[in-house]
């Protein structure tokens, strides 16, 4: 029998642009977003400060001077003034970027991997196993995050490692929960069924289809946690549970300068301003990333 002629589907030639990769199109959208650009610029500047700060501001942040205590902003030789021990504020803020970013980003990165693994396992497995995992996670979820962080690092003892560990544990439950809900939705999607119908095993489906679709949303959520982590880390340092003096961590600086708030309010507010600027930049970038990645066609 003669095969009937099948007309090729007609398509306008304009649609023939080679499609950019997903991430490239996300970046293209981010570049058109002024808020995202500003936030990214702030974060980039902080990264530069954290990496190259000691070379950019070659002043010893630990050198104290009883004579030069609590100088105001604009003092010759100390553009941002000095703290209660006469240490240069500019040097301390710049050196502090390293500590604060480290304390903000590390727990989130660790919790991202741990939480995503737990949540995706629970969500894709579903049933009894999924319920068991998620109810256990919910126990942690029941505590306010500040309280949990303080309780954990208090129990583990003061110190940077323990502060990082407790912050990681604080962030695993929310990330796991987001991962679980994303994975549960994905499990019932047609393309997962289609993958099964074309012979993919459970491991392939999780690796290719679930991870491929879930990591984006989880990553965006985790980005928004960086600011929380920074604030909590600063809080722990403020309480003496995280970074210890004389290290120039912003939360700790805020704590020690607290007594000088009536003498030099502007100088005392500087570490807080840094924390604020950093956390809001991370939040804005996370928001922009979320909308740039939302390309449900």
């Amino acid at each position: 029998m003669a095969a009937p002629a099948v007309p090729a589907a007609a398509e306008p030639a304009a649609a023939l642009v080679r499609s950019p990769s997903f991430w490239r199109s996300v970046f293209a959208r981010l570049r058109r977003d002024p808020v995202a650009l500003a936030a990214a610029a702030v974060i980039l500047a902080l990264l530069v400060l954290a990496l190259f700060g000691p070379w950019l501001v070659p002043v010893d942040p630990y050198a104290s001077s009883v004579l030069r205590r609590l100088k105001p902003i604009g003092t010759p030789g100390h553009p941002l003034g000095t703290d209660e021990l006469g240490r240069d504020m500019l040097a301390r803020l710049v050196h502090g970027a390293r500590w604060s970013l480290f304390m903000g980003v590390t727990p989130v990165v660790l919790a991202f991997f741990l939480g995503a693994a737990i949540g995706i396992t629970a969500g894709y497995a579903g049933g009894l196993l999924g319920t068991a995992i998620m109810r256990t996670i919910d126990v942690f979820y029941a505590f306010p995050s500040v309280l949990l962080a303080i309780a954990l690092s208090g129990a583990l003892g003061a110190g940077i490692e323990n502060a990082l560990l407790s912050l990681t544990l604080v962030f695993v439950p929310p990330i796991a929960r987001v991962a679980e809900s994303v994975a549960t939705q994905l499990r019932n999607r047609d393309f997962v069924e289609a993958a099964r119908a074309s012979g993919a095993g459970a491991l392939t489906i999780v690796r290719v289809h679930v991870l491929g679709n879930a990591l984006g949303p989880i990553f965006v959520y985790a980005t928004s946690l960086v600011s929380v982590s920074m604030i909590l880390a600063s809080g722990l340092s403020f309480l003496g549970l995280g970074v210890r003096p004389p290290e120039p961590e912003w939360g700790l600086m805020l704590n020690t300068l607290r007594t000088a708030i009536y003498v030099q309010p502007w100088v005392a507010a500087l570490p807080g301003a840094m924390i604020f600027a950093t956390s809001i930049s991370f939040n804005l970038l996370a928001d922009a990333l979320r909308s740039a990645m939302d390309v449900k066609g």
Binding site: F191, G212, K296
Partner: peptide, 10 residues
Amino acid sequence: EPLLALDPVY
């Protein structure tokens, strides 16, 4: 529905 049965990220 091919739009749902194809994985959107690949």
